[in-house]
Amino acid sequence: MTPIHPHIYITLILLLPCSAPIFSQQVTITGKVEGKDNVENIHVINKTSQNFTITNANGEFQIETKLQDTLLFSSIQHKTRSIIIDKSIIQFRALRVNLEEHVNELDEVIVGKTLTGNLLYDIKNVDGKPPINFYDVGIPGYTGKPATQSERMLHEAGEFKPSMLLGLLGGSVPLNPIINGLSGRTKMLKNRVKLEEKEALMQRIKGRLSRDFFASNPLEEDLRMDFFYFCADDPNFIKHCKNQTNFNILMFLRRKYKQYQENLKSADN
């Protein structure tokens, strides 16, 4: 057998450590989501590292991964898809994902001779006249969001201002705002409206984001509702979550999740 030159041994020893590091390190992958529907705000969740991001208007995203991590792609309009990071993705640091449209199909319903189950078609074929609204008779009307009971009560209570007390001398000031202001009823109604606003916002966030959030931030089922109330109790809950993007809301939830976990550990100790 021909002996191997010592220089070849040295070369092999130097090359061996360089073959694997790229696959063991955490790298940033640039990806693009494609689909028939809107591809903005698709949730991209690394279930392994519990990291997440959201696609931009072009469906593009960046996320840190390593070999064998599982990425979960989720949105209301698309079917959820998971991808395991392989050596090819790590090597090129790029990923292209095609999502299928999520369609909720309803069975066709035929009742009598006119109803088909197609709402637009049935409206055109049903007998009867549409109800008259305020536009038909030329009366201006309110078309905004209907007020809650507490909001209506607060409006009826009126807003007390100290300057109103001067109007008592002329006898031309309504008494309701003054009485409700001095008795504390107006303040109580304002607090009730704020609580209802926080509750409604919290429920909307829970319904829209809880599935994807808990996919990367595991929490026992019986603690999840308590977690959302914990978030809603934050003094800055409205500021961080009202009229904010899903990404900003998820970042807020992540911060509260860490605090919630710390509280659980303190309670156990």
Rank of each mutant, 00 (worst) to 15 (best):
L195I: 04
F228E: 01
R204E: 14
F214P: 06
R192C: 00
N217S: 14
D212A: 13
L223P: 00
K206D: 13
M225Y: 13
K194H: 08
S210D: 15
C231A: 13
K190E: 10
M202R: 15
K206P: 06
F227Y: 13
L189W: 02
A232F: 04
D226N: 09
R192E: 12
Q203M: 11
F228N: 04
Y229P: 00
E221P: 00
G207P: 05
A215N: 06
A215M: 09
A200P: 08
I205L: 01
E221H: 10
E196N: 04
Y229A: 07
F214E: 13
C231Q: 03
K206W: 13
E196R: 08
L195E: 13
L195S: 12
A232C: 01
L223T: 06
I205S: 02
D212E: 15
L189S: 02
E197N: 14
R211D: 14
N191M: 07
K206V: 02
A200W: 10
G207W: 09
F213H: 09
L201V: 05
L195C: 04
M225A: 15
M225F: 11
A200I: 08
L219P: 01
N191D: 11
E199W: 09
A215Q: 15
I205N: 00
E220V: 01
R204S: 13
L209W: 12
D212W: 03
R224S: 09
R204Y: 10
